[in-house]
Nucleic acid binder design. Structure first.
Lengths: 224, 224
DNA sequence: GCTGAATTTAGCGCATACGTAAAAAAATGC
DNA sequence: GCATTTTTTTACGTATGCGCTAAATTCAGC
């Protein structure tokens, strides 16, 4: 059976393609790009490029500047602090709400799986695999919280720090504490202890924030 | 001296004009509007209308639907719960951070002024004036928190519930407790007690949320 | 040489046009 | 009459073109 190739608009293609180019670094942070240049690169006219750029602008990935084209935004340590502060609050809320819902073990299976994959990643020393599992844990936690606004906002902010994570991943200490934290949050949700889930996750995120910010400062990284 | 009329683009005009039309109810919640119709109404072509619509779409005010035009989004009680949950977390964070900054009395003057205006609004029974002062208090609090992401997100969500507020304002009990809460938050920020500021504001917001949700349920308001 | 004015150029903001696909209307068959 | 097919219409998605202004360049005067 053939994959039904749904007719996706050029604007949508431009959005996902530009995102990919930004995350892969092919469009470097801080660099400028003319609309016409991007249009040619993606094989379409300026119109869908502009619409895509406006969407990505409101997601905080880039900036439209008159006569200067599109500027890919970089992320400063201050930005990181802001973003981690918001993530701390909203993910803690999600953990609290998830615990209140009384999910069954099956419903939490994907969360448990993410934790296992993180453990395995650590054991094998595969940090990228660990990071991907960590992402899965966080986004699944937020999904379980059930608040669609939180889901959207967290996804947006996670995108903004994605590039930075790639850089810091190999500078940070081996994240054994992180895995223990996640296990604690999972167990709190499992037994329906909303306050514990909230507080555990909150502490976890705050520590992660402080660790990252210290790293950036020690390595004098001002812009990512 | 003449106001220097800065050259504002049609897209920007379309954004603010469409926002105005939505908030005033001239574009009713749930209604559909053709791009060409809106373009004619605002005296411009479809291009800036589409760009504006994309921006407002990402702000959660409306939706672009192929061949159906622009749909103005309505807000359900579930949406209200989601939004108030997020506002609770992010405003509490702002209160905490504001208290940590050790603002002087002058720097908090605008916040104090908003509280005074709320008191005066209550005394004179002018609920709209009270509501405007309440808005000022909340947005100033968030501004004092100093996190630009929080500022943007809270402003966006406040927009989404704006229409609902107009409806509930005259159904709710006289908000005397609300004024007392704000005074408490102000004093906590004043004396630099971050935890108190956070907890007081958190409780305040949670009570406001429960009150509004009860109101909507009692009056069987499913869509605003 | 250097400053400032004049000229050129570049690139966006927007209007416009058109192909296309979905929806509506009309026509056809039973 | 009702269901199905065909035709028509409608409104979006996108390409294209151009005016206008900010930026870059050249030129003039000292």
């Amino acid at each position: 059976m053939q994959q039904d190739e749904k007719a996706v608009s050029n604007t949508e293609r431009a959005i996902s393609e530009l995102r990919r180019l930004v995350f892969s670094g092919e469009l470097a942070a801080g660099s400028d790009h003319l609309e016409s240049e991007l249009a040619e690169r993606l094989g379409m006219s300026r119109t869908p490029i502009r619409e895509a750029a406006r969407t990505l602008e409101s997601q905080g990935l880039l900036e439209l500047r008159a006569r200067k084209g599109v500027r890919i935004l970089s992320v400063s340590p201050d930005d990181m602090r802001e973003i981690y502060d918001v993530l701390t609050e909203l993910e803690s809320l999600a953990a609290e709400r998830a615990a209140e819902k009384g999910y069954s073990e099956e419903q939490l299976a994907y969360l448990a799986e993410a934790i296992e994959d993180m453990d395995r990643g650590l054991e094998l020393g595969e940090l990228e695999a660990w990071a991907r599992a960590d992402d899965r844990f966080h986004s699944e936690l937020v999904r379980l919280g059930g608040n669609s606004r939180v889901i959207a906002i967290v996804a947006m902010l996670a995108d903004q720090v994605r590039r930075a994570r790639t850089v810091t991943l190999f500078m940070r200490p081996v994240p054994v504490q992180s895995n223990r934290d996640h296990q604690g949050v999972y167990e709190a949700i499992m037994r329906g202890d909303a306050q514990a889930a909230r507080n555990l996750h909150r502490t976890h995120r705050q520590q992660a924030r402080d660790m990252i910010l210290n790293l950036l400062e020690r390595h004098r990284l001002r812009q990512l």
